[in-house]
């Protein structure tokens, strides 16, 4: 018989061993950790805009996980594509930036130097620009400010 294990006091987290049904096409999960994702976030937003919007509109129709599997696969494939391209073209800058984020509490404002190098490389090689929607018009966007008030933490 099955026994109930309290999830909060169980020795091992419960893992469902059943694989995805064969009727659903398999897609390689991205598997990227938080810092590289945060480093690449604005480029994912720029590069995969169509797929992301499509997916979110689909989710708006229906929250059921089964409803948007196709759009979701497209989103993941697009992100995969972008990360691969980033690694091919700007590996050094990318690594530097996400390592910096990892070491600085994942705050963008503590890692402007590697970020600028990465942004420059991404623009030159892939033509992707980091834009923050909703920033006040006519002002320098926060990631390009030369002398910010909030800089790194004193050590």
């Amino acid at each position: 018989m099955s026994v109930y294990h309290k999830p909060d006091s169980a020795a091992h987290p419960y893992k469902d061993p059943a694989p995805l049904p064969a009727s659903v096409p398999q897609v390689q999960e991205l598997g990227t950790t938080s810092a590289p994702l945060k480093s690449a976030a604005f480029f994912i937003g720029a590069y995969c805009k169509d797929y992301n919007d499509d997916f979110m509109l689909c989710k708006g129709e229906n929250r059921d996980p089964a409803h948007c599997l196709k759009e979701g696969r497209r989103v993941t494939r697009c992100a995969q594509d972008l990360i691969t391209k980033m690694r091919e073209n700007c590996l050094q800058e990318f690594d530097k930036h996400w390592n910096c984020l990892e070491l600085h509490n994942q705050e963008y404002n503590h890692c402007r130097k590697p970020e600028r190098a990465l942004n420059k490389c991404m623009f030159e090689k892939l033509g992707l620009i980091k834009t923050i929607p909703g920033s006040p018009e006519g002002k320098t966007p926060i990631h390009e400010v030369k002398n910010p008030v909030y800089t790194g933490v004193q050590k």
Binding site: F42, G72, G134
Partner: peptide, 13 residues
């Protein structure tokens, strides 16, 4: 916005 851009990806997964 960095989080908003990641939402579709994480949600899909």
């Amino acid at each position: 916005w960095s989080r908003i851009y990641l939402v579709p990806l994480l949600l899909a997964e």
